[in-house]
Design a protein around this nucleic acid. Structure first.
Lengths: 94, 94
DNA sequence: AATATAGTTCAAATATCTTTGAACTATATA
DNA sequence: TATATAGTTCAAAGATATTTGAACTATATT
């Protein structure tokens, strides 16, 4: 696979992950908090069920937009700013 | 509708428009040319049919990512850099 | 040990997106 | 005028994405 094709596939994954109102709201929420929070806390703040939350977190994580850390029962998520920088701020450099 | 909701809807539209490999390739193509071209020329360069091209141009235009100008039989498209600046480069300011 | 909590997985239902050919409008050319 | 070209619209088919409840795993608490 060529380098340009790899880049396009990665970009598509990022943009698909951002192309949903629930996920954009999660991202805004994580950004304004600026520290990691549990999935449950996000679910409650977004007024979504845990099943739906789990689905969205998986997509955000696969795109590299959030980091996740599991501690005992809970999973803590936070923004991965470097991905935003690379794919949004520096869009034309890819 | 609140301002934040408006912003999110606009962002969703932009990101959906970018969340497709054909449309990303169109955008790269328009960017490297850096001048307007006819839809037909883009269709041929992307190896897509005119029906499919028309569909993608409509989505890109509705998102504000391209400008379009009709001259006689032909429609000329070009990137609208200001939208990329506003929604990608300055993502966190929205 | 029994129960509660945090999160995941699965499958079914629904909604949304993309491709395609055929028919169409409008303009250009022989 | 007849024909060709550029692009749009429509509808049908197929592909993807999202929501939901039920069942599940793993950890915490009584």
């Amino acid at each position: 696979m060529t380098k340009q094709t790899e880049t396009i596939e990665a970009q598509v994954k990022i943009f698909k992950a951002l192309a949903d109102p629930t996920r954009l709201e999660i991202i805004r929420y994580l950004n304004q908090l600026d520290h990691e929070v549990s999935c449950g806390e996000v679910d409650r703040a977004m007024h979504i069920g845990k099943t739906s939350g789990s689905y969205h977190f998986k997509i955000l994580q696969a795109a590299g937009l959030i980091t996740a850390r599991k501690e005992a029962r809970e999973k803590y998520v936070a923004l991965d700013q470097s991905t935003f920088d690379r794919y949004l701020t520096h869009f034309w450099q890819n």
